[in-house]
Design a protein around this nucleic acid. Structure first.
Lengths: 332, 332
DNA sequence: GCGCCCGCTGCAAGCGCTTGCACTAACGTG
DNA sequence: CACGTTAGTGCAAGCGCTTGCAGCGGGCGC
């Protein structure tokens, strides 16, 4: 494979000039630049990432840290990130942190610290203080999507408002016996995404004087949603509406309702959160949070910080929107 | 951030010894090794990827090239790859090639050639000769998942057999008016994954003397499957069974059938391919190809080649299995 | 008891780039 | 016309590691 001095020889200049011509840094006459570009092109020269990054300290790569790869929200955000980064010539290095604490530590203590990346994007990661500190210690821009974290720059929808919006929608239809499928106090602290959605739910109910705010825990999968809904719907005092903290759980709830012989929305209303592509096939009413766009915005934010922009401190707020596809209706 | 000479100083040895102690290459006395490890740990030293890879030529990273990130099969395979690579201390660099030819070229001609990776895994990528050559030119192990490619080491299910298995299943139930939803001759060459599945379908029908083998083109999404099924099912001479080349399309077909007031499997049988997690919620009979396992095996294959194993030339065959969940039955 | 071998360690030369600095030549100014 | 500028280029010193080679003891064989 051709190296920089092959190009220099072919173009009749020094390696310094080649470097300047190709990177655009430093003055090079037009004629020389053209000759260098032609030679580089002819030889198929591509700068070595290792050598370049050792010399400059920059890597032209961004790390993306995710807890899951095979769930819709994560792969969709990732696709958005990838779009934006590829457009700007950056590579993306993927760090998948599993639930295994040892592996998780290894990602934060080893992999991420190899100085392979110029910036970090985390997606819906609940980081403890040590992990947050470890990330900051990398000395690179960090953007956390969907994980309100006082220690980091975050980019997230206002999940409290999302929870209120969904709940209010059901209340306005006249529902009073509403259950929430998501994280209960035991599984999702108040400051996490699931916790905030839950609080939005509880608060909204309280405001209209509904005391009972039942939360049925589930794990954000279709199956979890289905199981939770089955538990909720099979007894006499069943709720007339369900607010699921994710579309996957909402879809599970719809499937469970069908299985129990209940019609949606006539017998039970269901609303979710996400904007999952499957939603339209189930006529699912949801609070869309434009996942792909979140990825694009996070990538853009990291890149602009790399270009020297001030980090947007604190919480950037992302858009969300109620999409009514018919799975909610007034109670009978 | 601590460098290797900080560790050397702290441990009272030379950088050479630190390098040897940490990498395990070359003889180091136990006492020295322990001192070095302790010092490295205390200082939080992690070797710089750039410096190390410049010196050794190895990067401890594998590139994964995908055409889509937000489709089930791809993100699931990716999850499998990631599992296996993380376990072995490798990073994964993601290259998403879009349909835009310019961007596609940039990935092959620039990004992949930055010498950032020790190996490549491609997932269901249809590569032209030039791209295949370009990949081989990287001089690193390459494993292509689900893309029979004479120029590369491939790891793939026998899609011809998959097509036959699904079709034979329908034939044995007594169906004769069977349609295939997938790629027609115009959209999928005979040697591609969709093309092979189609050929398995056509061949199986021919063997039992069924002349007409209708192929309805669709784009492998739920929506595409739904549209194709709608076209097929709404007229009088509708097929009694549908073989969709992916579970997403099969699910679309089931949804379309419902919409048309048809029951599955009483009025129309549907079979898919993949083993999509949603399948069980639709009672979808499918040919499971264990996507996650494919990723794991591909990663293992690349790693063992890096360990010096001979590349498994030609085509490695992956397991697949008919999973009957009830969406197929004898025709009425 | 002497020499040899081998295990352990350090020295220093790279790996392939980038960039501060020095230099040259051409261009304006007063 | 002499001088200061400035644009364009090259030299060479790193960037932070790895590793071939050499040196240095200590143990062992004869």
């Amino acid at each position: 494979m051709a190296g920089i001095d092959d190009v220099a020889r072919a173009a009749g200049v020094s390696t310094a000039t080649v470097s300047r011509a190709l990177s655009g840094r430093g003055p090079v006459s037009t004629a020389t630049r053209d000759r260098v570009l032609a030679a580089a092109d002819r030889l198929g020269y591509v700068v070595s990432a290792a050598a370049s990054s050792l010399a400059t300290g920059r890597t032209r790569a961004v790390g993306v840290v995710v807890p899951f790869l095979d769930r819709w929200f994560f792969s969709t955000v990732l696709a958005g990130i990838s779009d934006e980064l590829v457009r700007r010539g950056f590579d993306i290095t993927l760090y998948s942190v599993s639930s295994d604490p040892d592996e998780r530590r290894r990602v934060f203590d080893d992999h991420l610290r190899r100085r392979r990346i110029d910036g970090v994007i985390t997606i819906a990661l609940e980081l403890d203080a040590e992990e947050s500190t470890s990330l900051r210690g990398l000395g690179v821009p960090i953007v956390a999507i969907a994980g309100p974290n006082p220690l980091l720059t975050t980019l997230t929808v206002d999940d409290l408002a999302v929870g209120r919006l969904a709940t209010t929608h059901l209340l306005q239809l006249g529902h009073r016996r509403i259950a929430h499928i998501g994280a209960d106090a035991a599984t999702g602290a108040a400051s996490t995404v699931p916790g905030l959605r839950r609080r939005g739910f509880v608060d909204s109910l309280a405001e209209v004087g509904v005391a009972e705010a039942h939360v049925e825990p589930a794990d954000f999968t279709i199956e979890g949603g289905s199981l939770a809904a089955t538990r909720l719907l099979r007894d006499g005092e069943a709720p007339t509406a369900l607010f699921a903290a994710s579309d996957e759980m909402a879809i599970g709830a719809i499937l469970a309702a069908r299985e129990l012989g209940l019609r949606v929305p006539e017998d039970v209303s269901v609303i979710g959160v996400d904007g999952h592509e499957l939603g339209r096939w189930f006529g699912l009413t949801t609070v869309d949070q434009f996942a792909r766009g979140q990825g694009e915005r996070a990538a853009a934010a990291v890149l602009s910080e790399l270009d020297g922009a001030e980090p947007a401190l604190g919480r950037g707020t992302l858009p969300f929107e109620l999409v009514d596809r018919g799975s909610t209706a007034p109670p009978r």
